[in-house]
Amino acid sequence: MEGKTVQRPHAPAALACSAALLLATLTACGGSAEADTQSPTTPHGVTAQASSSTSVHVMWEPASDNTAITGYEIYREGRKVKSVPAAKRMIDIDGLTASTAYTFTVRARDAAGNLSGPSPAVPVTTQATPPEDDRAPTAPVKLRGTADGSRAATLTWGGSTDDVGVTSYDIYQEDSRIHSVPGTATTARLTGLRPGTVYTFTVRARDASDKSSPDSNAFDLTTASAPGAPASTAPTGLRTTTTAEGKQFVVDLSWDQPRTGGEIPAYELYLNGRMTTTIVWGGTPPQGRATYRLTLTDPPGTRYSLKLRAKLPDGKWGDFSAQRTVVLGD
């Protein structure tokens, strides 16, 4: 029986065809043909502050990238000691030796693993070993501030005292430390804020033994809105009162409702940054100032931060109120 002849392409031609198809596939899927080889810009504004005899606080301004920054790497004498995500621009380097000189640099990293050049090296000397120190500093007082446009603010406060000495002041925004200044300063300028946003700041003093003071008073500050942006929908004037009732605690909240052009059917209440309950009115929503009673069964000394936001007439959730902190039984 006569066999059937099968025509096969010449091998080099077949390989060329496969390579072309692979290149087209990689290009279509954003593969190596479009690999990111551009490094981020070098971080600038790097500072290093000796927070104590064994730690240094390093801060820097953000870098930029053609795609996105995914993190920063911190180097001590040219050796990497810490990595942080892109959202962080400060870190404490611990485990150092007292009265010792160090240098720190910072590099930015993108999603492709490209590293920026190192920032200029910043020298710092850790503090001397402190004498025996059993007491924390007193709390800073009279925290005040002003918004500098829509993306910056300046805070001022009355200084703390300590039996040995205050070495730094740490600025907190909703219980997260966002900035530090030396113990000789009682003012701080904050940048990188969002327009038309309510911020709640507190300050703590720290001594050479890394003992922190209690919080200063909380100060609420609202940055200016961006041109053409809608008015803020944040509840204002949030107040809290905590009382003990048997083995539980009752927190009474009250606040001024935002003007939204209609009734506010509900609020979301957040404790320690997590949504805890939705406040829904049983009948007609209240006008003007609203109230809510929260019952907690945690032990005395438990600390909570509270904030809330309104459900707007169009069904979307509005801006967050300023934050309040309560300590049960305090």
Rank of each mutant, 00 (worst) to 15 (best):
T187Y: 08
P299H: 04
T5W: 15
T125R: 15
K80V: 13
T276C: 10
L193Q: 00
D163R: 11
K4A: 12
Y304A: 00
S209W: 01
P9M: 14
V122A: 12
A224D: 11
A68V: 08
S39F: 09
T70I: 11
T233G: 08
P286L: 09
V251T: 09
L22K: 09
D94W: 14
S52L: 01
A322C: 12
G196N: 11
D134N: 13
F104P: 01
I178M: 00
P43Y: 02
G149S: 07
Q38T: 15
P137V: 04
F249K: 03
Y304C: 01
I178S: 00
L312H: 00
V164Q: 12
G71W: 02
S116F: 05
V81I: 13
G261V: 12
D319F: 06
S83C: 03
P265E: 06
R303K: 12
I69M: 05
S53L: 01
G158F: 05
G78P: 13
P130I: 06
T242I: 02
R144K: 13
L308W: 02
P40I: 07
L294E: 04
G228H: 04
T126A: 00
R109H: 07
D330S: 14
K82R: 15
T284K: 15
T125S: 12
W60M: 01
P195K: 04
L21N: 09
T67D: 15
G30I: 13
P130A: 05
T291H: 11
G117M: 04
G196C: 10
T302R: 07
A86D: 02
G228V: 00
T260Q: 04
G282E: 15
V46N: 01
P130M: 04
R194G: 10
V124A: 05
Q127A: 14
G95F: 13
E174L: 08
T186H: 03
Y75E: 13
R274T: 09
D94V: 15
R177F: 04
P85H: 11
A14G: 06
